[in-house]
Measured scan of single mutants.
Amino acid sequence: MQIFVKTLTGKTITLEVEPSDTIENVKAKIQDKEGIPPDQQRLIFAGKQLEDGRTLSDYNIQKESTSHLVLR
């Protein structure tokens, strides 16, 4: 499924993911596309910070959901 990640600069990154993917996996995909190390990434969805060990389905992130990327 596709999800979108919006950066603070207003850029939207499109990612191909599975509901069973962990947040860690998603951060690795963002690193592949954008070159941002996962330890600098914070992903926010529905006002919550997403934890590495959880999956997209844990957070009820469905296709075409948009989460926000904040850099630390």
Score class of each variant (00 low, 15 high):
M1S: 03
M1C: 05
I3Q: 01
I3A: 01
F4M: 09
F4V: 12
F4A: 06
F4T: 09
V5C: 03
K6N: 07
K6V: 13
K6P: 02
K6Y: 09
T7V: 09
T7E: 03
T7C: 10
T7F: 15
L8I: 13
L8Q: 14
L8K: 10
L8C: 15
L8N: 11
L8Y: 13
T9S: 12
T9P: 05
G10Y: 04
G10D: 04
G10S: 04
G10N: 06
G10R: 04
G10F: 03
G10H: 05
G10M: 03
K11Q: 08
K11H: 12
K11G: 08
T12A: 05
T12V: 14
T12M: 13
I13A: 01
I13Y: 05
T14G: 05
T14M: 12
E16A: 09
E16I: 13
E16Y: 12
V17L: 05
V17Q: 01
V17D: 00
E18M: 14
E18I: 11
P19R: 06
P19I: 08
P19K: 06
P19N: 05
S20D: 11
D21L: 05
D21M: 11
T22V: 04
T22E: 03
T22N: 04
T22P: 05
T22L: 10
T22D: 03
I23D: 00
E24R: 14
E24M: 13
E24A: 15
E24P: 02
N25G: 08
V26H: 00
V26Y: 01
V26K: 00
V26W: 01
V26S: 00
V26M: 05
V26T: 03
K27F: 03
K27G: 01
K27T: 02
A28T: 10
A28P: 00
A28C: 10
K29L: 10
K29M: 12
K29Y: 06
I30C: 01
I30V: 04
Q31P: 01
Q31W: 15
Q31N: 09
Q31T: 09
D32F: 11
D32G: 09
D32Y: 10
D32C: 10
G35S: 05
G35T: 03
G35A: 05
P37S: 08
P38C: 09
P38N: 06
P38A: 15
P38Q: 12
D39L: 09
Q40K: 12
R42A: 10
R42L: 15
L43W: 03
L43M: 03
I44R: 04
I44S: 11
I44E: 12
F45E: 01
F45C: 05
F45L: 07
F45N: 05
A46F: 09
A46N: 15
A46Y: 09
G47E: 05
G47F: 04
G47V: 02
G47A: 04
G47I: 01
K48D: 06
K48T: 12
Q49T: 15
L50S: 01
L50W: 02
E51K: 08
E51I: 08
E51V: 09
D52H: 06
D52I: 05
D52C: 06
D52P: 06
G53I: 07
G53D: 11
G53W: 13
G53Q: 11
G53C: 08
R54F: 12
R54A: 07
R54T: 06
T55K: 10
T55L: 08
T55R: 11
L56W: 03
L56D: 01
L56H: 00
S57D: 08
D58P: 00
D58L: 02
D58C: 03
D58R: 02
D58V: 03
D58T: 04
D58A: 04
Y59A: 03
N60A: 08
N60F: 06
N60K: 07
N60L: 06
N60G: 15
N60C: 07
I61L: 06
Q62R: 11
K63H: 15
K63L: 09
K63M: 11
E64S: 12
E64T: 09
S65L: 08
S65F: 09
S65T: 12
S65M: 10
T66R: 08
T66P: 08
T66D: 10
S67D: 10
H68M: 12
H68C: 13
H68G: 07
L69M: 07
L69V: 07
L71V: 12
L71R: 07
L71G: 06
L71P: 08
L71N: 06
R72P: 11
R72H: 14
R72Q: 15
R72S: 13
